[in-house]
Structure formats: C-alpha cells, structure tokens
Design a protein around this nucleic acid. Structure first.
Lengths: 214, 214
DNA sequence: CAAATCAGATACCTTTCGGTATTCGAATAC
DNA sequence: GTATTCGAATACCGAAAGGTATCTGATTTG
C-alpha cells in the first residue's frame, strides 16, 4: 500500500487537508461565524494549535474555499458547453448540471450563500468575492462568444449582459433551494434557463427581421 | 401641533417604532448577528432595558421585520400588475419596480439576504421564512391566474412554476446587486424578466400549434 | 546518539454577546 | 396627594469567540 509512512511535510499537508474539509462541512452547516476554529479543529481530530500552524487566520481559510468554489463552478459551465445542441438545450443542461453537481453536493450551495452573507458584513471579503465573480463572468462570456459565432442571428444583447443574467438566475436558484428545498424541484433551474434562451432567440429573430426592413 | 403630549401607551409605541427602525438599519449594515441589542437600543437612543420591555427576544424582532418585508414585496407585485400591457411588459415593469422601489431602499435588499443567511443557521427561522415565501408565491400565483385568463394561449407550464422562477430571478438579482452593485445596472432585472416572458410566449405558441396538429 | 526543529497541544487573554434580575422615576389611578 | 404601575436604566451573568504565547514530544539532521 502507498500509505506506508508520512514524512513531516506530507503529514502536515494531510492535516491541512483534513482541516479544510472539516471547515467546509462545518461552515456549510453552521455558517462561517457559527463554526468556531475550535469546532473545526476538533471535527478534523486536532486542536486549535494545528489550525494556526496551517492557516494565518480564519479569513485566509475563507479565501481558500472561495477559490475552490469558483474553480468548480467554471468547470461546470465548461462541461455543459462541451456537449452538442442548440443554445437552449445547452442552457438547460447547464442549469441541470448546476442543480445536480454543485447542487447534489448541497454543501457548496449552502457554503456559497454563507460566503455571500459574510461578504455583506466584511468589506474586504466582499471585494474578494466580487473580483472572483467578475473573473468567472469574464470567462463564461469568453465561452459564450466562441459559441455565439455559429448562430444564425446575433444575440439581442451584449453577451456580457446575458452572462450576468444567467449567473444571477443560477444564484437565485441556489438561494431558494437552500431556503426551501422541497418547494423547488431540481429541474426548475434547467427549465428556467431553457425558457430564457428561447426568449433570447425570439428577440434575436425579431430584431434581425427589423434590421432587414431598414 | 399634533405632537403635544404622549400618553404612556403612545410613548411606548413610539419607542418600539424607533427600536424597530434602528434595528432595520443596523441589521442591514452589520448583519443580524453583527448588530447587538445594545447597539440597536443605543442607536435608537435607549438602552437594552427598553428593548426587552418591547420585544420578547431578538428572534421576535427578526420575525416582525420579516413580515414587514413580505408585505412590501407583495404590494410591489400588485402595483406592477395594475398597469396595462402585455405580460412581457408587465414583467419588465415588475422587475424594474423591484430594483428601484424595494431596491432603492437598498436596506431591504441587504436585510433580506441577511434573513436568508440567518435561515441557514437557524432551523426555526428558516421554517418561518419558508412559510412566508410560500405564502407570497401563492398570492402572486393567484394574481397571475387572474391575469392569464385574458391570454390567447395557455401558459406552457403551471403558473405556480412560473411564479417560482420569477421569484427566484428577482432574489438572484437582489443577491448579486448586493455583492457587486456597480457590476449590475438596475434595468437588468426588468430586461431579464422581459426575455423570460418572451420565451414563455414563444413556447406557449409552439405548444398551441402542436395541439392543433393533433 | 545528541541537538535542533517544528507540528501540534494546552492554557490563557480580551472582548462581546443575549439574556435576566433589579432598581429607578415618571405617568396614572384613586 | 399618595399609592401604584410599568417603561426604561443599570448592573450583572455565563458562555463562547478569535487569537497568542508557551510548551511538548516526535522527527529530522549531522
């Protein structure tokens, strides 16, 4: 077995990982402020000393988890766009993917809402979150741009606005799903995006016609 | 002047009101847990004694503000539907209304996100929030139902689902607006709903045609 | 094998919180 | 005008938080 013996560095890396995982669990469960460092360390099987040997502060840990979340979320969108299909179908797929992948792991969903809530109270953190949000939006807009080149009609709005709107819808879904899971079937997210992209197509066609008249 | 002299009851009612207003400010600014009862009482010009003479607990105050929020939000939708126009135009109006009315008072927006965050950590509160959310949805669905009777095509989905989706979009807008206000123009919310309702119409027409074929 | 290192444990400090018990003082009732 | 009521002030409590300083013991180094 590869689990023979851990060097000091390996051992510490393992400790760090365990602490991070425990933090993710507890933050999702009790909130960022609700889970104390003592709790986290204890959940991971250590004490507070181990935490401060591996992280500068609670804030630093927040940022690390935040980066992980945004990386996952970009992967998600890339996956959805890799499949064939009309924009409407891809949108539905992306919505379902968000609901089931990042969503099946409802921890991420809860955790993201916790991040948002914390951002309201901590301007530093809000700024970090906003930077990453803009970065994600820019990446997704790039993907849309590449995809939109094949379409028969130009989109009726700048692609960046469309990215903003879809991101906003997905976040809204996450929020409501967390507040009242039973009232929100998972396919709502995909259906909503499907309807939205249908509307985009209709408006694009209408405005293409209008341009022909000129 | 009508501000002559306050009886004991009137005086207490005034105190209560001042405390509630101060709480709304501070909760929006620092979060539900971030604003202490001492802070609130002090902001209103009183001490903690006044608070506990007027409210059973912090939790009770949360609920009172929550009720106020949902009442305002229903008024909002009712206003938007009072105006003439196609469903798409009404949807845009409702979106703009949310962004500017409840949104101009950005306190409500922040506060609602705080409520959501708190709901994640307090099951009792989450339940109370979910109840009010369902109630609001039911009311809006009733308004939609009355409105939908005039339409040439039946909606492509149950109206309740449509209510859910629009509510979810509006909440997503509120969330993103709070996280990064500059990145989100106010008209995005109206435009998004307009596109969505355009998509609904397109799908309704398509499925009406499909039914004709049968 | 001895010395140095450092991950992690322990103990502790300061601050702050929600809530309670008690007290004070002005408006009411008689 | 005296007694009573009760809104609000004050003082206090126990719990819990984040963070620091110190210590310990196993692993590494030479």
């Amino acid at each position: 077995m590869g689990t023979a013996r851990l060097s000091r560095k390996e051992s510490q890396a393992r400790t760090r990982e365990l602490l991070r995982d425990a933090a993710k669990h507890l933050f999702a469960e009790r909130g960022l402020e609700g889970a104390s460092i003592d709790d986290i360390a204890h959940e991971a099987g250590f004490t507070k000393g181990a935490f401060y040997a591996n992280f500068d502060s609670k804030h630093a840990l927040y940022l690390e988890l935040l980066d992980e979340y945004f990386a996952d979320r970009l992967d998600e969108v890339e996956d959805a766009l890799r499949h064939e299909g009309s924009p409407e179908d891809q949108a539905r797929r992306a919505g379902l993917g968000f609901a089931s992948h990042i969503g099946a792991d409802s921890e991420w969903r809860r955790l993201y809402i916790e991040f948002c809530a914390h951002a309201l109270r901590d301007e530093r953190f809000r700024h970090e979150l906003a930077i990453r949000l803009r970065g994600l939006r820019a990446e997704i807009t790039r993907l849309y741009t590449r995809r939109a080149a094949d379409l028969p009609y130009p989109p009726p709005f700048p692609l960046e606005q469309i990215t903003t709107m879809t991101g906003l819808m997905v976040d809204g879904f996450a929020l409501e799903k967390v507040l009242d899971p039973e009232a929100l079937p998972d396919d709502v997210s995909g259906t909503m995006l499907y309807v939205f992209f249908t509307g985009l197509r209709t408006l694009a066609e209408q405005s293409a016609q209008a341009n022909d008249w000129q």
